[in-house]
């Protein structure tokens, strides 16, 4: 998703962004259908506008320095990328420190600033006074037409954006069901909470931290490893030392930003926006702004 946001600015290309929009639309419609059938119950976070802005922006800078978001770092570990492994380790430590350790007061302070709209009501639909289905129709119908008409160069390897978007959307919706059926709380794909939980479990052995999300984040690099082996692309690769330290810093910043924002780009920009959450919308906007400003400051300006 980092590349999807970054490429809009850097090379004026929307290929990956279209895959993201398609996945978001499919997941959003499917989980609202599942809720209608009583298979899911939504828990929408309050409108943490300040932490969404600060956390989203900080996360955007972090993933720019890390060279990828938290989820892409997890799967790149499975492809043999040592730099991504360092990012993941730093992300886990920073997420745990911010959600239940030394940096927790910072997150608590920022998240204490919020607008109370009502329980489970901090959604875009509620604020606009629209039925969620009507909002989805207004949002996704024009997007569907745009996606249908748009064209992109075929990829050099791997899937097209359409296939990627459809599969990711289905997986994202299935994740909601899997999480709910496991007895964990009803939420979809997420990386931040489970990353902190993994460290809490490793540090104190409390098995209450071993929830569905922890197994999800363990599954991501394992799946990527199998896919990389299958496509003969697994290779141990390490960045230069200076780059490695830059990635480590980026991973730590991402962990702090993600907890402040109540989730990373997956937890907010895919799963949270699927709920039509207002907090996730603000987080996503500031995450994109952070990505663009970070890309310009740390990479484009230096290369000019």
């Amino acid at each position: 998703m980092y590349t999807a946001f970054r490429d809009i600015l850097l090379i004026k290309d929307l290929t990956l962004f279209k895959a993201y929009i398609l996945a978001l639309a499919i997941q959003t419609v499917l989980i609202h259908l599942l809720e209608e059938f009583g298979l899911l119950s939504f828990s929408v976070p309050p409108f943490y506008w300040l932490s969404a802005m600060v956390g989203g922006f900080v996360f955007g800078w972090g993933m720019t320095l890390a060279g990828g978001c938290s989820s892409s770092s997890y799967y790149r570990v499975g492809e043999g990328m040592v730099g991504s492994f360092v990012v993941v380790v730093m992300f886990i430590i920073a997420a745990a420190a911010t959600s239940g350790g030394a940096l927790m007061p910072l997150a608590v302070m920022l998240r204490s600033v919020r607008i109370d709209i009502g329980e489970n009501s901090a959604t875009i639909a509620h604020v606009l006074g629209l039925n969620p289905w009507l909002l989805m129709l207004f949002l996704f119908l024009p997007l569907a037409v745009w996606l249908y008409r748009s064209h992109s160069s075929p990829p050099q390897r791997g899937w097209t954006w359409k296939r990627t978007g459809v599969v990711l959307g289905l997986v994202a919706a299935l994740a909601w069901l899997a999480s709910a059926w496991s007895g964990d709380f009803h939420y979809g794909l997420r990386m931040t909470g489970p990353s902190a939980s993994l460290l809490f479990y490793l540090a104190n052995g409390d098995s209450n931290h071993l929830n569905w999300g922890v197994f999800e984040i363990i599954g991501v690099p394992l799946g990527a490893f199998l896919a990389a082996q299958w496509s003969h692309e697994f290779q141990w690769r390490a960045p230069k030392p200076r780059r490695l330290m830059q990635q480590a810093l980026g991973g730590a910043i991402m962990g702090v930003g993600a907890v402040i924002a109540g989730g990373c780009n997956i937890g907010n920009s895919l799963t949270g926006l699927g709920l039509l959450s207002l907090t996730s919308l603000v987080t996503t906007v500031f995450l994109i702004l952070g990505t663009w400003s970070g890309t310009y400051l740390f990479f484009v300006r230096r290369a000019q």
Binding site: Y2, T3, R6, L10, I11, A66, G67, G68, G83, R237, A238, P239, K240, R243, Q246, Q247, T295, F299, V300, R302, A303, Q304
Partner: peptide
């Protein structure tokens, strides 16, 4: 550009 992290492979290419 092996060993560089994104987006440096692209920015170095542009340069």
């Amino acid at each position: 550009v092996r060993g560089e992290i994104c987006p440096d492979p692209l920015t170095l290419t542009l340069k």
